[in-house]
Design a protein around this nucleic acid. Structure first.
Lengths: 121, 121
DNA sequence: TTGATATATTCCTATGTGGGAATATACTAG
DNA sequence: CTAGTATATTCCCACATAGGAATATATCAA
């Protein structure tokens, strides 16, 4: 099999940095039309339309027509699977802080013990 | 340009479901050797080794030799960029609960109003 | 109508994929 | 050393990309 399609799920869709930028832009504020996104991203318009197409297919963004423009908005609940998955690992970097502190304290104790042993000789 | 390499960053590395499974397995517990992962995943050994190679290159897992086996462990802090990015959208689904409730209440009001209007005719 | 603007689509190509199969490498036991 | 076990690597292929260029489609304005 080849690599999964970018449109196969959210994880594949957001693997592309430009698409994450688009999501970021749509998160901060209201709807935006394509021209606005083109300007902010500094990408050619067809590239932006294609990225929007991918995000549309996985449901991360939604469109509606407004005259000759198309207004895109974020559909944030479609990002939730990513959040749910990554959240399981949150404890690791919280615990990590604690364990780094612990290790440091252990080392300090060992050094102190060594010093005491050395001074006895 | 073609699609970015799976080894180019964490986002691309974890886009593959099997690799997320591997991460999940390594998250629940201690180090595991390849054979163990092969058994749990039900994949051919070369496939597992290749997935581990990708995760190694982006730093999500680390290996050390133990005799003829290689023990893999999770390197959770490398997942943090994903967490940091997705966390920005957390507010959306918290707010969403509130807004779903609101919408439901609005609809109920509208239905009630329509019923009242109908009964007046 | 015609011309301009906004957006999407199509065609192209270089590239990297994931799985299968086979093989290479490394280590261990006897 | 030899056989066996554990793991990685190589070669294959069908496939989907992302960007570029060109074009199609839709809507507006005059």
């Amino acid at each position: 099999m080849a690599r999964a399609a970018t449109t196969s799920d959210v994880f594949n869709a957001i693997a592309e940095p430009r698409r994450r930028e688009i999501v970021d832009l749509l998160a901060r504020g209201a709807e935006r039309d394509v021209t606005e996104l083109v300007r902010k991203l500094g990408l050619p318009q067809p590239a932006v339309s294609k990225h929007l197409g991918v995000l549309r297919k996985v449901g991360v963004v939604a469109v509606h027509k407004a005259g000759q423009r198309r207004l895109y908005r974020l559909n944030p609940q479609e990002l939730k699977p990513v959040h749910d998955w990554i959240q399981h690992f949150e404890r690791f970097w919280t615990d990590q802080l604690a364990s780094i502190k612990e290790v440091a304290e252990q080392k300090a104790k060992q050094l102190a013990a060594r010093d005491r042993a050395a001074s006895k000789q």
